[in-house]
């Protein structure tokens, strides 16, 4: 099947019910998207599917066909959110970080603290208690 990941066309050979998470991590060799639970609860696998945050562990490969997938690797490294996460200690162990950043991408410009808390309610961080993440996003 064909899909567009981070602006690049990719051809992968995966059964249609393969998890998008596995397609990205294994077939596309993009391991920046993480698996924390495989049940939609932790948000570590968050990617953008046509611009909307989704849990890649709950998306069949078939649904990514002809869609635009964006993963953490697609942000380059100099994205304001990435810089702010680095600066404000928002990444401790870092396993939730790619998913957090992807979920935060869906926020409107100049979000309020409440906007941030609601947008990230599907992303669990066990290290930070979230406050450093808020500081990063609000100042990005």
């Amino acid at each position: 099947m064909r899909l567009r990941v981070n602006g690049r066309e990719m051809e992968v050979d995966a059964p249609p019910m393969t998890r998008l998470l596995d397609v990205l991590r294994i077939h596309c060799e993009l391991p920046g998207t993480k698996e924390g639970c495989g049940e939609g609860e932790c948000g570590a696998c968050t990617v953008l599917l046509d611009g909307e945050p989704v849990c890649a562990c709950l998306v069949p490969a078939a649904h990514a066909e002809s869609a635009e997938v964006t993963t953490i690797e697609g942000l380059g490294g100099e994205h304001p959110l990435q810089r702010a996460f680095a600066e404000h200690g928002a990444a401790q162990c870092g396993i939730c970080t790619p998913g957090m950043i992807m979920a935060a991408l869906a926020l409107p410009p100049s979000p309020t603290l409440d906007d941030v808390r609601v947008a990230l309610a599907g992303n669990i961080c066990r290290c930070t208690g979230y406050h450093a993440i808020y500081r990063a996003i609000l100042r990005a």
Binding site: P53, V54, A121, G122
Partner: peptide, 9 residues
Amino acid sequence: IGGAQIQNR
């Protein structure tokens, strides 16, 4: 229902 990721799907 769930978080944003779940509501989107």
